[in-house]
């Protein structure tokens, strides 16, 4: 039995420790907001936070989450930065198909948590692991900048 905290709530999973965190979230805990895209940490659709750090949950064994805090798209709106990022995404109507956007938002929140005023180069570096096949990159960049501005105002 592996125990950890997801979005502030205690969670337990009776699965082998090498099961990827992604499938524990989706299949064991029924939280489908975190997406499966590639299974190889190549596309970023499965990005969640582990103790505040962005990780690709498709290649993170659930054993690595034992005793730690996991944050997912379902709960990120309850954090001040997550709320601002989601608001910026909504204001700009960023998503098209939307499938990658959970991961994009989780990567963006992680970036802004570390670096409240990211440059274009910072955004490239933080977001390059998140693929969007609809091509919303320019809108994602604009939304990150808008969220950063609203954080400064809100501070």
């Amino acid at each position: 039995m592996i125990e950890f905290v997801v979005n502030g709530k205690r969670a337990r999973a009776d699965v082998p420790g090498d099961t990827p965190l992604l499938w524990v979230l989706r299949d064991t805990l029924g939280m489908t907001g975190t997406k499966f895209g590639c299974g190889q940490a190549l596309c970023g659709a499965c990005t969640v936070h582990l103790d505040g750090q962005p990780v690709r949950s498709c290649t993170t064994p659930v054993s690595a989450a034992a005793g730690k805090k996991v944050a997912t798209i379902e709960g990120i709106g309850a954090t001040p930065i997550g709320k601002k990022v989601q608001a910026a995404w909504t204001a700009l109507d960023v998503p098209q198909c939307g499938y990658c956007q959970s991961g994009q938002i989780m990567s963006a929140v992680a970036l802004l948590s570390e670096n409240p005023k990211p440059s274009d180069a910072d955004i490239d570096k933080a977001m390059d692991g998140n693929i969007c096949r609809c091509g919303t990159y320019n809108q994602i960049r604009a939304a990150i900048k808008d969220a950063a501005k609203s954080m400064t105002k809100g501070a």
Partner: peptide
């Protein structure tokens, strides 16, 4: 469709 696509609640075939 934006709100459901920014909070993870949008339902795809995978879900």
């Amino acid at each position: 469709d934006t709100p459901a696509k920014v909070n993870g609640s949008a339902m795809f075939g995978m879900d």
